[in-house]
Design a protein around this nucleic acid. Sequence first.
DNA 1: AATACGTCCAACCGCCTCGCG
DNA 2: GCGCGAGGCGGTTGGACGTAT
Length: 265
Amino acid sequence: MRCNALENTKLKQKKGLWSPDEDQKLREYIENYGLRSWSAIPINAGLERNGKSCRLRWVNYLRPGLKRGAFSMQEEETILTLHGLLGNKWSLISQHLPGRTDNEIKNHWHCYLKKRVAKSESLEAQNTNTGNNESSSSYMNSMSRNLSIDSSNTANCSYVEADQQIPHSQINKLPKILFEDWLNLEEFHGHNGLAYNGGASNSSNYQDTLVDELLSNEAPAYSTETANHESNYQNEDMFHSTQMIIDDFFNFNGGDINIEDFLYM
DNA sequence: AATACGTCCAACCGCCTCGCG
DNA sequence: GCGCGAGGCGGTTGGACGTAT
């Protein structure tokens, strides 16, 4: 009997696109009763869906505060940068793009950004083969070379085609991640596991902690001002220590990323 | 107008982690 | 310590829609 009941429940579970009526039911239920157990929500709300489906629909579509529409250039650059740092950690990336969901970001990456990165990397490879390579071949660098602001109309940002030459003066105007925005000296020298521990045994925890600390700072991740590392870093030790952290964390990038890449792209 | 092809996005699937008994 | 269920995440797919031929 119990099996039959379960089978009936399964049989009743609907799949595919959500109807406006289903959306309305889910929205009203959550507004009235809040987010409790996802598995209980479809039963109580009278929906023929499973809990996972309800959760996905709410998170990706119905949740208040979601942004719809095209990604701005800044959002795209944030994705590119964070993807360079974190890889396919879409949920982590989405935490730094208010109103965007991990699913949306993931789709945008697969539809647009991945191709752009691939294109720029192949261009980079061509340049290298023809002896026309520039100083750095980092992932971040190759991506950023393809991104440029249309200076004639800043409200209408556009992407420069990969086969166009970008003047160096324009490259320097690109927004940059400035690690001094993320790291402050107190944190760096002290508490909460952010201090560099010179190859701790629990390296994955250390890396997670480091990323969390880096990304949870309230300071803006971007700055358009020209980087000047000698003034941004209080002393040479700070600079080298930061370099060590970056090397440690990004060793999976084959050592391609270094602090100069971030500051002088 | 019909068909083929490409793009994009919502949603599903499977795996992993975590908390609880 | 183990099993189980729930929730979360990333990869993948299905289908709607637009464009090219």
